[in-house]
Design a protein around this nucleic acid. Sequence first.
DNA 1: CATTTTATTTAAGATTAATTTAAGGTGTAT
DNA 2: ATACACCTTAAATTAATCTTAAATAAAATG
Lengths: 221, 221
Amino acid sequence: MIVDDSKELRKIIKLYLENAGYEIIEAENGKVAIELLKNREISLMILDIMMPQMDGFELLEALGDDRKFPVIFLSARGKVEDKIRGLNLGGDDYIAKPFDPGEVVARVLAVLRRSQRNIKKEIVVGSLRWDVEKRLVYLEDKLLELRAKEYKLLTMFMKRPGKVFTKQEIYELLWDEPYFHDDNTIMVHISNLRDKIEEDPRNPKKILTIRGIGYMMDEGC
Amino acid sequence: MIVDDSKELRKIIKLYLENAGYEIIEAENGKVAIELLKNREISLMILDIMMPQMDGFELLEALGDDRKFPVIFLSARGKVEDKIRGLNLGGDDYIAKPFDPGEVVARVLAVLRRSQRNIKKEIVVGSLRWDVEKRLVYLEDKLLELRAKEYKLLTMFMKRPGKVFTKQEIYELLWDEPYFHDDNTIMVHISNLRDKIEEDPRNPKKILTIRGIGYMMDEGC
DNA sequence: CATTTTATTTAAGATTAATTTAAGGTGTAT
DNA sequence: ATACACCTTAAATTAATCTTAAATAAAATG
């Protein structure tokens, strides 16, 4: 997304980045940007500092700490204070006007490469959300209090929704031991887990029983 | 401030940094530097290691731990490089001669950004307040007397409240060593830390145990 | 529809993991 | 060299989780 009040400038950057294979959304000011972000996910924002109404710094602050994409600042002033301030605020790079459009493409590539490394991973299946880094799972934004085996079990399913796991697979993934016979300990854990994540544990919709074969997490739930 | 015995070199760096919008003070040796610092505040020092009389290391030591500005070392390549890295004397960056003046500007920017981020920083989690710069943690405005490991442990948690840390992560973050087996030294430190920060250490509300997985600092406390 | 098989639930006992305590080591500063 | 503070180790205690086993429920089979 390019946020800049100059249509001319947006057009130039857009042209170059589309040439490089990127899809571009334009926003002429901060308010429009915020509006557009409600419905679309973006992987990077190019943000002009000087804009009427809401300036780039304000927009960045409005986006908050949980913003998922990197930001590259554009500024007419080649002033160092702007650069420092922008980078301090959480900007990821800085380009001074006037700029070479080729430079913009190069910096976009570099920032994307860098930021992809620390992307916060989050796996969502239906109403379940797993924050991989924090090792927490939420059900409709409410934190689930899972025990060790339940956590492993649930995240195993969430990694591959739609895949049927046999008991042998489950046992070997969770216990790191070869599986001999069917003590029903797996089933006990599944039962306990269902109590925590299913609306009606007697009639599970998330972790489905595939009789005679194993269990599966439903993709659409 | 640039501290270097070579007038030529000071001139080059000064030129570039003034171009970038900074005000520069020159000092031809450590004694002059100390003298100048009595009357002026600086935001960063570029410091040559090899100088007659008082060398860079000595000057840095003379400045003491309560120095308020970051330091970038200059040194002839190879000679002292390892020593600096190894000794970890408290410099904030290192530039090897011969250098590209543009590199110097870039590093100055980077170091200033880093140090400015730290200056303003104060991390608050519930009733705990961590003054990053001063390396002090307060509990309800009362200073905590923490030992080294406790400080590291607590600030590790405060950096990422709401994240579950495994013992392996904790060990590797605090000890910088690979984690083999579970001696319970981590737990002893957690126990000691809880004695200092928890109202009822038997029933911790700040550092929570996630049994079978690890420990977590509660965001809302 | 009865029977068999497979899956689920429950709760108590076994097991594992975490905590605490105290003693012994280690290193640092005086 | 000595004292002190801090860190680690080890052992005893406490607590939560996991497993087992038995009872119940549901689905498949003939």
